[in-house]
Design a binder for these strands. Structure first.
Lengths: 215, 215, 215, 215
DNA sequence: TATGAATGAGGGTTCATTCAT
DNA sequence: TATGAATGAACCCTCATTCAT
């Protein structure tokens, strides 16, 4: 699961991928910088050449994960399709994304708590530190904005379907939460070696929810 | 060197409840014994009069949470009802349980990873320690057994409904996972101050899933 | 959050020597990692860069002490000398060793109890931890083997002397224990500032015992 | 090894004996009040009805051990016997004492370091505390006086023997230390289940040393 | 870039000790 | 007397982070 860059120089990307993997297995708090470093054959100290600190690395992982899914979801929403087709494709995209990239998917979901903790900038903060901390806050805000967009896209398609009569009238907020809960959970129980492929699982879940929505 | 300004003696139960709350908010790794102690006006050291260690306390929280829900689910399953009624009631019981006792419910869900880590007995292991460690392992095994039962009950009712024609043919494993994922997630987004009550949310979710299942 | 006011980088060897000194003065249980660290101008945390844990450090101290003495005793035994000359030289070597290196010598003697406590591997035991713990057990076993050899060498020379008529017939086990007890005790009462030098003391003790043995 | 007073009230004596046993096995620092309490079926808290604190208990153990041996040694010294007979009996008395009461004997020897640490009275010391602390200091001083006497008695007999020509001229200080070291060590290696009885061991050791001394 | 050495801050845990019951 | 509950202090150890090389 851990990339081994053949003793070559390690890229930012390599670290993010490896970190995502470790994070998904252990959770943020239980994952040490040493763990992540080991996964790319580095020392913990070396990671600081690539990321300002642990939070910054976590954020990079989450950004990567979210961007990946968002990149697949967005075009569907803005495509010209009936609402049920849209939702069906979105569900599949999300679920497949989680199964294909368990690491990124689950990390995105489970570690938000850690990012949410508002941490003050280090007490001994020079001007430069303050600047870089502000940068971090900005990136974090951007992440949450993206996350809101993600949720919003689902809610939007559902609302749209309800309005145009494709779906029966449901509370779009509750339905979206229900949907996303089920999706996120896949990262917990899915095993690549399991009986069913990610595609099959995704198809089944899409069917469950669409039948529940059908007008 | 030892005062006791405590208003009243604190019971094991008190600690479990407080711990559940803190655990849900912060997660296992991020929760310190001091945090939990503070929540019941004690010192961290005092907690060790009631629980052997942090793991043991976590386990107690999870046991309490699981037992609570299981106590509500079991009678429904063994009642004489049509499959869809059963499932409807089970979903409501679970979701309402989570909303009423967010702490216990969510703790049960999110911290399994911590319990799963196989840990060796403490380093300074006398015979007595080993014995109590064995006890812990037993309790942990019992917890997982109960957890399996919990899942099994849902799966069982679904399978039953499929067989007697109440439900359309679905993969009961995947459906159960989908269901439970959605339920567990409630602990994340539900806010008592929200627009809808736990009962209303539960009813909605039950409807979603039952419509998705109807033959 | 990490300064380095240290004059010079500290070597493993430095720590072992300092630790031996502290250990001899305070005993294992009463010696804290902080004590040892202070003796080499480090923080307790820094010691963990050089030794996995306190036990490992203790073992290193004992190994060093034992190896030092063993290195002086062995050649004497395998030399071609009359038994009484051998024993005389061995006694002197041991006693002088203890006086010259009180720290190492006494540590070797007094802390065996701590090492004897069979301890299970650390609680948070990953596979890697288990491996390194196995290593520790191996080293510990090797230490006890060396210790047995040490005792055996004395017993062997005594037995040999009895058999070739140099010594009167004594119980070699009891005599060895008597001898070693007296030697080890030197670490307790010897003061470099005392009336007699280590060499003088050693010579006197050798004389006592050899007269007691003479056929 | 631990007295079990049949669930009856426990006497000061019982505790001292049990404590001696535990102390010998574990050493002072590693022995907890709970350990000692458990050996007499009590709670740690209960011990404080019998002893002011741990140090006080340790001191009581050492006093008991020392008094026992001293009581056997003194009469021999002041008896009217040739020096060699005296010394022979003293050696036997000491060694047999150690083997018969391993606990008391060894505790006496090995834990002096703990008593030696000069501890200041507790910072929060009321007048009463100060008084009882002064008492403790007095008792401790008395103990060390007794200990000096013990050593002095041996040295005295040796010197006497040298002066009256029974023994060859040896340094009585060094010889006494050698003697006592060997004796004390017996507490470490003697096992009641061993090949030889305490009496036999004592006789052998006496012979070794007396031959070494004979004029 | 990469790392070994170092460190401050804490976290879990133990322990001697106190006190109300 | 005995004890359960509580606590402050201290200990071992880990970890994110820094810095000189």
């Amino acid at each position: 699961m851990a990339r081994k860059p053949a003793d070559q120089s390690v890229s930012r990307e390599d670290i993010i991928l490896a970190a995502a993997d470790v994070l998904q297995r252990k959770g943020y708090e239980a994952t040490t910088m040493k763990d992540i470093a080991a996964a790319v054959n580095l020392t913990a100290a070396s990671l600081y050449h690539h990321f300002r600190n642990k939070d910054s690395l976590l954020l990079a992982v989450m950004e990567a994960g979210l961007e990946l899914i968002l990149g697949r979801i967005r075009p569907i929403v803005y495509d010209d399709l009936p609402s049920d087709h849209k939702l069906q494709q979105m569900i599949c995209a999300h679920v497949i994304g989680v199964t294909q990239n368990t690491a990124v998917g689950a990390a995105m979901v489970f570690e938000i708590r850690s990012l949410l903790d508002v941490k003050s900038p280090p007490a001994t903060a020079s001007t430069a530190d303050h600047q870089s901390y502000a940068e971090f806050l900005e990136r974090r805000a951007a992440f949450f904005t993206a996350r809101d967009e993600f949720e919003y896209l689902f809610r939007q398609v559902i609302r749209e379907g309800v309005q145009n009569g494709t779906f029966r009238p449901v509370d779009d907020g509750i339905f979206t939460n229900t949907l996303l809960g089920a999706h996120n959970w896949v990262g917990i129980w899915y095993k690549p070696s399991g009986r069913l492929s990610g595609d099959e699982i995704a198809a089944m879940m899409a069917e469950f929810f669409l039948r529940g929505l059908k007008a």
